[in-house]
Design a protein around this nucleic acid. Structure first.
Lengths: 333, 333
DNA sequence: GTTCAGACTGTAACCGCTCACAGAAAAGCC
DNA sequence: GGCTTTTCTGTGAGCGGTTACAGTCTGAAC
């Protein structure tokens, strides 16, 4: 059944031309007469010819594939809507090209060496990198591969040449400004991990907005982007600053935890305390009260990373991109 | 910087042997003297040699890659923890091999033809298929590729030769038996879509358990696995069968909807009505009351699919696999 | 001391495509 | 019509491996 696929030579013979001409038609090159092109095209159609990736990439020295490397291989961490949405965005662009998408989950040493092998075996024409912590060795591995690397989100240490990031700082500022505008002044924040750019930038945005509004920004608790962490941080916040009337929580998961603690502690939301989250994950609509939050264009992040990488592969020189965020006001403010 | 990678010939020369011998060492074949093997190995280490995927797959006619095809390219649908967890499981096994993982999101015609191209260009040694609805054309495309195909979950029409599935029927039966054991007898069910195997099997399990317990299984409402659908179905159920004292809901998302409706209608859970869900998504712990549910081993699903595919590629003949589910009792029963 | 099986090694023919180069055909010019 | 350009086409040498085959070398058996 699995009859040998036809080869370029068979197409050439059938079309009555030479191998070179068929190759030119396939790769849409100039210097092919209309007649020859037509003959080749119909031969291809009749034979159901599809060029062999392997032969093509051996001869041309490019691979026709890119890798999406995610710095996480703990299933619990990877199993995260964020990644799923990024992948959806990446896929949307990949589909328009004839590139293939290689997925590498690479937080461990093992995963990293897999990526290194792929790159060294000329296995990909480019890399997209996601979710890097401070000093993540994955970045070095990727950069050493000799192919373009696009970062999703800036790593904390140093700014890579090419990246796409959400406007974390601006979004945080927006959120806090909204709180100020609705009459809050003793505004606290629960931050994300401070070894992650998103954590730092959102905290920075909070401080900027507070400074601009002439408010004190000392009501701070650091957490880790998880629901439990958010709950604990909120608890500390209430202990230390019982007067707070609003809290900007740097992720929706943490905000869910915060809402729970506020309820337990007898504070009404948004009556006593207004709450703003960050990310706009689907669950944000289902908290009670529904969460006001900053929407991050995650799918667009994936899409734009991929566009940027494709441009790099084509030899262009794109510039880094910061995607705008958007405040979504619901019931919690 | 991107200095040409060393080739096999350079390794051969440095080791003072022929190309063939180097190849044998790399592929761990017999008939290589210890001396030659050692010389080659150190030459490889010194040169940092990594074989070229492209050349190797051209010559050997295998690709060193498998594709995971997901029948969904609507970002909203794909952005689903289910898929993320499957991918995590797949990755865990892939990491142990030297296979690469190609991801194809293929619900549309375009996605499907991409998969077809990959297979026809001998771009993969095997395919894993996920989330097929009745008559999903993706299945045909995959089967036509001439490489082994492993299904994740049985499609509704026909049983594929190789698949891994969760024990949907058994899990449903377990759930209902639990309700019976805790003293319920007027047990209703909200089903999933009946063009999806999971929907049908869970309904079947419900009916089996009811029959075994000698109870009537006529309290049924069909829905679509979404929260809104589950809410609407529960509403209908309460209208038509106000006497029900328990409901087995075929997914957690639908169960969340059901809990909302029950609360609105003034029924206490589990006092008046016990509720069991299915899947054990993370959110199930956060509903109020926390949801009793059937845990599906999603990561294991990905893992076992991949193991099965690897065996097939190695020429073995694995048998289909049904993974056990597990009842997780929380507050709603 | 032959003979011979068996372990090792080298050789060379592919695998299916790309691409630089050279030759042929067509077009443009005087 | 001859000559130069320009456009098209064929040719052949790789790309970097795998693998069948043939040859070499060993030690054991006779």
């Amino acid at each position: 059944m699995s009859n040998r696929q036809p080869t370029l030579d068979e197409v050439a013979e059938r079309a009555g031309v030479s191998r070179g001409t068929v190759s030119r038609v396939i790769n849409d090159r100039h210097h092919v007469s209309a007649k020859a092109r037509l003959a080749v095209q119909s031969a291809i159609a009749e034979l159901g010819y599809v060029p062999s990736m392997a032969a093509r990439s051996l001869a041309s020295q490019r691979r026709g594939a890119v890798v999406l490397a995610i710095s996480s291989d703990d299933p619990a961490l990877f199993a995260n809507l964020f990644f799923a949405e990024v992948i959806a965005g990446v896929n949307a662009v990949i589909e328009e090209t004839d590139l293939q998408l290689l997925l590498v989950l690479a937080a461990s040493e093992r995963g990293r060496s897999r990526l290194a092998r792929i790159l060294q075996s000329r296995g990909a024409d480019g890399v997209m990198l996601l979710a890097l912590r401070e000093n993540d060795p994955l970045a070095k591995v990727a950069e050493a591969g000799g192919v373009p690397v696009v970062h999703g989100g800036r790593p904390l240490d140093g700014t890579p040449r090419w990246y796409v990031d959400a406007d974390n700082r601006g979004g945080a500022r927006q959120a806090v400004e909204h709180l100020v505008a609705t009459g809050r002044s003793r505004i606290a924040t629960v931050t994300g991990p401070q070894d992650l750019n998103a954590g730092v930038s959102r905290y920075l945005g909070y401080r900027e907005a507070m400074a601009l509004a002439g408010l004190s920004d000392h009501r701070v608790a650091h957490a880790d982007f998880t629901e439990a962490g958010g709950a604990a941080a909120t608890s500390r916040l209430l202990d230390e600053h019982p007067d707070l009337d609003a809290v900007f929580v740097a992720s929706d998961a943490m905000a869910a935890g915060a809402l729970g603690v506020l309820r337990e502690r007898g504070r009404t939301v948004p009556g006593d305390v207004a709450v703003v989250g960050f990310n706009d994950v689907r669950a944000a609509q289902h908290t009670r009260p529904a969460l006001t939050t900053v929407r991050q264009p995650i799918i667009a992040l994936g899409r734009e990373m991929t566009r940027m990488l494709v441009r790099l592969i084509d030899g262009e020189e794109p510039t880094p991109l910061i995607l705008p965020t958007e405040l979504v006001v619901r019931e919690s403010t």
